[in-house]
């Protein structure tokens, strides 16, 4: 019977379906990238042709880079994403450790309170967040975005990380205590390194919506100096509505950083989600 299970026909069918969806998934990305390297005429003449000598043209990239602000947008996105990730992971891990490690009154309640945010999206508070940011003078600063995204990322971080921290061996922590380590040292030196796969999982799921968010940058920080790349590319589309080369080049450039961040974390990702959180 097990021969039936691993028969070549089944395996070919599996590969066929997976290849088909891979093509569907990558085709649009492929179209953007190849056309960003072509001259304007070639884009319209044959959108599916590969860039070859004759139609190869970097005019899109030179336009975008000459525009200058693109680097600023990119930098803003990077600062906001990395900053929010750092705080969401640090604060989330600290809270998760307190909730999973110690017994104290209100433990359950605090856990539930923090988990509420997984189900209720922060966007519904936009009206009041905007008022808060106006009142504290944080409108059009990157700090406003970092604060909002940290709050947005915290519930999932606490939820997933506390599940994982329960699996860290108690003997290890108690051995640390006997050696006279403080609770802070136990957390930072012993526990944090052990939950790295979980941190990577949280990082990916937190990072993607932050990097790609259009809502809060549009509302809280639409100024030229604080635009993120997602908002910036949106502006490129408006500005270059007839300049297809520039739009395609801007979009190709916007794919690269988030892809790199994803690849860095993804090696840990599957290990992370397999090990506990979602069962």
């Amino acid at each position: 019977m097990s021969q039936v299970h691993h028969s070549p026909a089944r395996s070919i069918a599996a590969h066929a379906i997976l290849i088909a969806w891979t093509i569907v998934a990558l085709f649009p990305v492929f179209v953007v990238v190849i056309n960003s390297f072509k001259s304007r005429k070639a884009i319209f003449a044959d959108p599916l042709a590969l860039p070859v000598p004759g139609n190869f043209d970097l005019v899109g990239y030179t336009t975008v880079l000459a525009q200058g602000d693109f680097f600023q947008y990119f930098l803003n996105s990077l600062i906001v994403t990395v900053g929010s990730l750092f705080f969401a992971l640090l604060f989330g891990a600290m809270a998760a450790f307190a909730l999973s490690e110690y017994r104290f009154r209100g433990n359950m309640l605090t856990g539930l309170y923090l988990a509420l945010g997984i189900m209720i999206p922060i966007r519904l508070g936009t009206v009041a967040i905007l008022q808060l940011m106006v009142a504290s003078g944080l409108v059009n600063t990157l700090t406003a975005l970092v604060l909002v995204y940290t709050a947005q990322g915290l519930p999932l971080a606490v939820f997933i990380l506390s599940e994982f921290m329960r699996t860290v061996s108690a003997d290890l922590k108690n051995a640390g205590r006997i050696d006279g380590l403080s609770e802070y040292t136990i957390f930072f030196r012993l526990v944090l390194p052990l939950v790295r796969p979980a941190m990577a999982t949280v990082a990916v799921f937190t990072m993607i919506p932050i990097w790609n968010d259009l809502w809060f940058p549009l509302i809280l920080a639409p100024s030229e100096a604080t635009k993120t790349i997602t908002l910036g590319s949106q502006v490129f589309i408006g500005q270059f509505v007839t300049n297809w080369n520039a739009v395609l080049a801007a979009l190709s450039l916007a794919i690269v950083p988030v892809l790199i961040l994803y690849l860095i974390f993804s090696r840990q990702l599957i290990r992370g989600i397999t090990a506990g959180a979602v069962k």
Binding site: F87, L90, F91, G92, M94, A95, F97, A98, L99, Y102, F104, T110, Y113, L114, L116, G117, I120, I122, L124, G125, T126, V127, A128, I129, Q131, L132, L147, V148, T150, A151, Q152, L154, P155, V158, Y184, F187
Partner: peptide
Amino acid sequence: IPVFLAPAVLVYTAIMIIPLFGT
């Protein structure tokens, strides 16, 4: 325990829960 919990609870309450109820 409060030191571990405080940053998360403070940021979350100030930026998420209070605005949500403000709305």
